[in-house]
Design a protein around this nucleic acid. Structure first.
Lengths: 154, 154
DNA sequence: CTAACAGTTCAAGTGAACTTGAGGTCAAGC
DNA sequence: GCTTGACCTCAAGTTCACTTGAACTGTTAG
């Protein structure tokens, strides 16, 4: 009844209408239609969109977010507890990311000027933490399996 | 003289030959050519490639990396000190990323179950730290300027 | 009732960092 | 000398998360 138009949803969430249409096409949010075919979003969708954006900041892909949203109860409007449960699952992920970056930073500090850069023995160079960095962007960028390390000496 | 082929460079750095060709096309590394037109990389390039990969983990784009590499002395092979200077510049960046993620994690913890998700007052929702997350991937994804917040009440 | 703005679909474009494929050439070992 | 595997170029494709544009229709305030 007090469902909102796509423009209003966009204004209220700070997400562009084109993005909202995209989310609908991807099955992340759902809308009812007016007689004339326009989208009307139930207010519950506001929270859903907020969830999506925050999840993206945590580094989830839309695929992962869709999967998370799919675990919400289908028959009722999700409660605070439901949302809490989902976002709680992000903590380890954030912890990991923080740990990876911290390790990188510390290695960087201890490696500065050591000259080992490029040697298979260098801690920096062998950081295979790469896959753990933020999930946004081309997945195969850093995600392809590390080659076999060449033997230490030619 | 003991310049390396693209295959060997790939094996030694764990970077695919196609990526190395791409880096050359982008002006990140340079090769001399054999009579038959094949690439031969000076050993210095090993370190350069290592630098590039580590810089990517820090979240730099290839554009930024190219700029950083451009600041190396042109007339001599870079020294440990040169590399140290460059990688030192990453620290604040890593510190920022760590701070952003830590803030997000803490807000998440304090927000779980608060039900404010989607309200303009929610700290999580208003995290405009987004632009500070890892620089990999579509830049405009989270980088577009946040819309004017709607008034607290309709 | 109508102007003006908000909405609709669908196909194609964007940017980053590569990868893949086709069609052909080079270098090294036997 | 020849085969085999590594290399070459160039154009096009891939992924993700959208955006843009064209051509058209709905909704609403005056």
């Amino acid at each position: 009844m007090d469902d909102v138009s796509i423009g209003e949803l966009g204004a209220r969430t700070g997400v562009a209408p084109s993005a909202l249409r995209f989310y609908e096409a991807q099955g992340l949010i759902r809308a009812v239609r007016t007689g004339g075919g326009q989208r009307r979003f139930p207010r519950e969708v506001l929270r859903r969109v907020a969830f999506i954006r925050i999840a993206q900041r945590v580094g989830l892909t839309l695929d992962e977010i869709r999967a998370a949203l799919a675990s919400l109860p289908k028959s009722r409007t999700p409660t605070k507890a439901d949302w809490g449960r989902l976002s709680k699952a992000w903590r380890p992920r954030l912890d990991d990311q923080i740990a990876v970056l911290t390790r990188l930073r510390d290695q960087l500090t201890s490696c500065i000027g050591c000259g080992c850069l490029s040697l298979p023995a260098c801690a920096l160079f062998n950081g295979d933490d790469r896959a753990a960095t933020l999930g946004v962007g081309p997945r195969y960028l850093l995600g392809d399996s590390p080659r076999d390390l060449p033997p230490a000496r030619k």
